[in-house]
Design a protein around this nucleic acid. Structure first.
Lengths: 201, 201
DNA sequence: AAACTCCAGTAAACGACGTTCAATTAGACC
DNA sequence: GGTCTAATTGAACGTCGTTTACTGGAGTTT
């Protein structure tokens, strides 16, 4: 078994989170456990609890990375002067990212934290910053509408797309429709653009 | 412990499903287990496996009831000659039903069946019949568009609303927005109507 | 260099989980 | 009453997250 000389406190902490990320990415959140993680890093399960509050703590750190990665994917989306096209480009960035990191993305929303456990605030802030980017496109489409309306549309399109993609990832989209997720997402984007374009207030 | 004289095979089967439904409705799917169920009916856990293949089997039967109940809620939605109003009425029926049966509704989508386990076909058919009802409203709004377009819009609005409601039920809608689910759902309906009304093809 | 303190890490345990199975036992039939 | 069958049990298996008493090596003090 590994001894403390092998890794400093910080090294071990990042070893744990890195390995957790790999395991979840490869095997999915269902196959992830305290014992499989500790086995993978060459320590026993108890050690994890000296460095992290619980498994939730570890998964949350992995999830944070996943969210940061999505923000980067957004930042690297193909630029376009047309806000409508830009919304589609963000959709492609989103689709590309979650396709690449399917299991990690699912972990973000499938991992069941124990009840009452509040969502860490930077989760919310990370998502809010993505929605701000989307809302800006809506503002560009109809500059006459106020900022709140654009933000709400951004939230709606984000929630809709996220949800449909989640359904797809968990294999349940086929309960509702037998169509390609990429097509569905872009159709949703078109739908939101069309509705926003024709809004009266 | 209960003996076989207490319940016939059929009585016991329905006792199991009834009790499972009650337990899930009251405590949520997370608190539901083979042992808690068997304790509630006065048998041991092993007995469950003589009458059902596994827990999945039992939960699936409960879920089927939930879907049937939703179909009834749709059928009992306030009628309206205006297809746009009717879509909102269906949305209200949906919201009312899942508010009433929150935990059962969550069980439908949160219960993790083991991998590769195919979704029972009548699940899909039950949902398809709901979507047909919605698609009819879209057909009435724009009779000039073909049936396939209406059906796809029906699927899209169903998926969007279902997803947003799921996010809300699992407490994760607040990750994205801080708004009342009823408002959001009706706004989504309006948006889909607006977009459908202005479709070009 | 020996003694001492401290704490990272271990192994074992706890109480849960889904599921299986040999043994028992109650009811049905002859 | 005896025999057969099938329902039911209780213990067991291997899993899970988490806690805990103990150990032994590293760093510090004498």
């Amino acid at each position: 078994m590994a001894r403390r000389a092998d890794h400093s406190k910080e090294e071990l902490a990042s070893l744990v989170v890195n390995t957790a990320e790999e395991l979840i990415a490869e095997e999915g959140i269902d196959a992830f456990s305290a014992r499989s993680l500790s086995r993978a890093i060459g320590y026993t399960a108890g050690t994890l609890y000296h460095h992290f509050k619980d498994l939730d703590d570890i998964v949350t750190q992995v999830n944070t990375r996943t969210l940061v990665g999505l923000a980067r994917a957004f930042a690297e989306a193909t630029p376009s002067a047309d806000p409508r096209q830009m919304l589609h480009n963000y959709a492609d960035a989103f689709l590309g990212y979650i396709t690449l990191k399917r299991n990690l993305w699912n972990a973000l929303f499938e991992f069941r934290r124990k009840p009452d456990q509040p969502v860490p605030p930077w989760y919310i802030e990370a998502i809010a910053s993505l929605i701000r980017i989307i809302a800006q496109c809506f503002s560009d489409i109809r500059p006459d509408l106020d900022e709140k309306t654009a933000r709400q549309s951004g939230q709606l399109v984000f929630a809709s797309i996220h949800s449909v993609v989640s359904l797809d990832s968990s294999g349940r989209l086929s309960l509702i429709m037998d169509r390609d997720i990429t097509k569905v997402v872009h159709e949703l984007v078109d739908m939101h653009i069309l509705a926003y374009t024709h809004r009266t207030k």
